[in-house]
Design a protein around this nucleic acid. Sequence first.
DNA 1: CCCGTAAGCTGACCAGGTCC
DNA 2: GGACCTGGTCAGCTTACGGG
Length: 233
Amino acid sequence: MRIEGELVKAKFVKRLNRFVALVEVDGVQEFAHVPNTGRLKELLVDGAAVMVRKYDKTDRKTRFGLILVRKNGIWVSIDSANAPNRIMYEALVQGKFDKFRDYSEIRREVTVLNSRFDFGLFSEGKEYYIEVKGVTLVENRQGFFPDAPTQRGTRHLEELTKIRQNGKEAGVAFIVQREDADVVRPNDRTDKNFANALRIAAEAGVDLMAYVCKVDAEQRRMDIVREIPVIIK
DNA sequence: CCCGTAAGCTGACCAGGTCC
DNA sequence: GGACCTGGTCAGCTTACGGG
């Protein structure tokens, strides 16, 4: 995925609320939109090097969007609003996944039961629903999701389980938005309900997939580089 | 096309509880 | 009564979708 727009180096100063951060660009403090409602507390630390996207639109309340954070010598994408979904979409369209090759139609934002899923794949007599989750939290090369309790995430898993019980296919795809992970695990410490729902979903036959992305600020690209296991133990 | 709403689920604030 | 913790409420910004 190409990282669009004008990227500018900046320094993280402070998160004002879940949507707005204060950053320093060329020695000047500016407001930046935070496109990630997770906690990000190990990433958004005082003085962290970041990349912000500059916007020219005048009707925004913030001139910048905070999209990359430097951590342990690599760039981490914290754009959970768009990047994971777009990366997954491009990979699907490009036929990068063997298991999804034989679906002829890809639809986005598909409503089933009480939830809207990121993707619905269709072929005659076959349906596969995918929910994409962005992973930004990594400790000791283990990615954890979620970063903060997510009722909606749990509901998504419950609905995917139901879909599977109705004889259709379903899966969760974790997009790790940084290169330094070898596995993904549910974050029991932060959200036990989500973790349990994930285990129940897996038991019901919901596929668990995880893909690591290389984030390259110079090349302005973020691409899936390998698949890693999801360990629910 | 415009407007409302859902999605991302924190952080500030306030009320109420506990403890010394 | 003050210091501290917990739980509930709500505003904060942007994007994309769906309906009128």
